[in-house]
Simulated scan of single mutants.
Amino acid sequence: MFRTVKDFIEDYKVESQGTQKLLDLLTDESLTQSIEEGRRPLGRLAWHLIHDDSGMLRRIGLDFKAPATHAEPPQSAAVIAATYRETAASILEAASQWSDEKLLESHNLFGLEWQNGVTLSKFIKHEVHHRGQLTMLMRQAGLPVAGVYGPSKEEWEQMGMTAPK
């Protein structure tokens, strides 16, 4: 749970930069990659990271610019990456308008009473969860993967080292 807006902003800056690094590596051709028939393809998963389709942030009163909830994902990886960049910046700007006291307010989300500080934490964890899925689909699509919490296999190789197994 976040107890200060500053802590959320600092954490989300780092996490959204990690997500942005991955989105910037997508190609138009990779957007149709899915783990199996009938599962969310890479493009739809990437788009899911951009809009607040669960309404999590909007339900707690955070007002930010994002594509419409049910907007179809673009067929352009560059558009997806640019839209994420804009949305993440808008979330950070909107959060910066909040006071720390706002984090103590509670709202019913998914049948549970969560303080806003809890919701912001779960929002970030939701993104990290889907970012993991994104990296797996990127690997299946033959794309390089950027390291988020440390070097990726490709980044180890760029340093002239072998990635740990």
Rank of each mutant, 00 (worst) to 15 (best):
M1P: 03
M1L: 02
R3Q: 05
V5M: 04
D7F: 12
E15W: 02
E15M: 05
T19A: 14
L22I: 05
L23H: 09
D24W: 00
L26H: 00
L26N: 01
E29I: 02
E29C: 04
S30E: 03
T32G: 00
T32W: 03
S34Y: 04
S34Q: 13
E37L: 03
E37M: 03
G38C: 04
G38W: 04
G38H: 00
R40Y: 10
G43P: 00
R44C: 02
L49W: 01
L49E: 08
D53Y: 15
G55C: 06
M56W: 15
L57V: 10
L57R: 11
R59Y: 06
R59E: 06
I60F: 14
F64T: 04
K65D: 13
P67V: 10
A68F: 08
T69G: 11
T69H: 04
T69F: 13
T69S: 10
H70G: 12
H70V: 10
A71M: 09
E72C: 10
P73M: 06
P74G: 06
A77W: 00
V79D: 08
A81N: 08
A82D: 03
A82L: 04
E86R: 08
A88G: 02
A94R: 12
S96R: 15
W98S: 05
S99P: 06
D100W: 08
E101K: 12
E101Q: 14
K102M: 13
S106G: 06
N108I: 15
F110I: 00
E113K: 12
Q115Y: 15
Q115D: 12
N116L: 11
V118Q: 10
L120N: 03
S121G: 05
K122P: 03
F123Y: 15
I124G: 06
E127R: 07
E127D: 13
H130S: 12
R131C: 08
G132A: 12
M136K: 04
M136F: 14
L137P: 01
M138F: 09
R139G: 14
Q140C: 06
G142S: 06
Y149E: 11
G150D: 01
S152C: 09
S152A: 13
E155Y: 11
W156K: 04
E157C: 08
M159E: 14
M161G: 05
P164Y: 00
K165Q: 10
